[in-house]
């Protein structure tokens, strides 16, 4: 309510400012035009009268403006975080950034709201074709954001998983503010990097043992590009925003089954290499964790 009044006052202050400006420009316009034909013989006096009248109006307007401005409450400074520095930006084409920033903030806010609605709807109507039955029905209504979890809690979850495997080493780093980027060393077989947003997995990249790990470049080996593909599928399969911890744990169990990527043959055809793709079985069943070739998994 208080805010609504503020807006009205602000509007009237702004409109009186506008009146002052337009009237002042009128004064200058009249002055620059000088004597005109319609001032007649006694032009000089009439001109001065007109000018005086205009100046009088301006001073009146100015008084109005002062009144309205004084009536405005002094605003409490907003805490804008890093965005305050945007005002100090000198490059011309970056000055418009603030509006974009506000817009994108609004968008994310909306997306967050809609996705939480969508999530509740989807968990009520089971459209999932996979056999994981989300146990969220019991916990419905408890809407909490898993995008924004304290770093300590994330560390705890991941460290717990790390401790349960001997041959899988998980290290956490935070190169981008508070979100964890987790790198996984699975025996001498593969390396993976997983980007987290809160407790939700956002991105996975799998690479070979001797390769350098980063989030975006793909492995130079075909087999690890295939495994990355499977890992993306698994990440989406295990995704469950209501039970994020379970999702992370299931994903890690699944990823751990790649420890025998090169040594175990495909469960269906019994061969190491598929005859056309010449790849080892780079797919692991989500439930049984058995190795299959991509082409044999149906």
């Amino acid at each position: 309510m208080n805010q609504a009044i503020n807006v009205e006052q602000l509007n009237s202050a702004l409109s009186s400012l506008r009146t002052v400006r337009s009237n002042v420009s009128l004064v200058f316009e009249t002055l620059s035009n000088g004597l005109r034909a319609d001032h007649g013989e006694d032009g000089k006096d009439k001109f001065l009268m007109e000018l005086q009248e205009l100046l009088y109006i301006v001073s009146n307007n100015l008084r109005d403006l002062e009144q309205t401005v004084n009536a405005l409450p002094i605003p409490v400074p907003f805490n804008l975080g890093n965005t305050t520095y945007l005002s100090q930006e000198t490059t011309q084409d970056r000055q418009a950034l603030y509006t974009q920033l506000v817009n994108s903030y609004k968008w994310t806010d909306k997306i967050h709201e809609y996705s939480s609605f969508a999530q509740t709807l989807l968990s009520q109507n089971s459209l999932k074709r996979s056999y994981i039955n989300s146990g969220s029905t019991k916990r419905r209504g408890k809407l909490q954001s898993n995008h924004n979890v304290a770093p300590l809690q994330v560390d705890n979850v991941i460290n717990n998983i790390d401790r349960s495997y001997n041959d899988m080493k998980i290290t956490i780093s935070r190169p981008f503010a508070s979100n964890a980027v987790v790198s996984i060393n699975l025996s001498h077989v593969l390396k993976a990097v997983v980007a987290f947003k809160g407790l939700l997995m956002e991105w996975v990249m799998v690479k070979g043992y001797g390769e350098t790990l980063d989030l975006w470049t793909e492995s130079r080996h075909h087999v690890f590009r295939k495994v990355t593909e499977s890992a993306h599928a698994a990440m989406l399969h295990f995704y469950s925003p209501t039970l994020p911890e379970l999702a992370v744990r299931s994903f890690m169990t699944w990823l751990h089954s790649y420890v025998n990527l090169f040594s175990d043959p495909c469960k269906k055809c019994g061969c190491h290499l598929h005859h056309t793709s010449l790849l080892p079985p780079a797919w692991r069943d989500f439930r049984t964790l058995e190795p299959f070739h991509d082409e044999c998994k149906q």
Binding site: V189, G208, H221, L261, F262, C271, H272, L273
Partner: peptide, 21 residues
């Protein structure tokens, strides 16, 4: 040479299959 793997033991079966093929 099978470049993705660094352990001979793990990849031996796979290499033998390839060579015999």
């Amino acid at each position: 040479e099978y470049r993705p793997c660094v352990m001979a033991n793990a990849v031996w079966g796979l290499l033998r299959e390839f060579l015999q093929g």
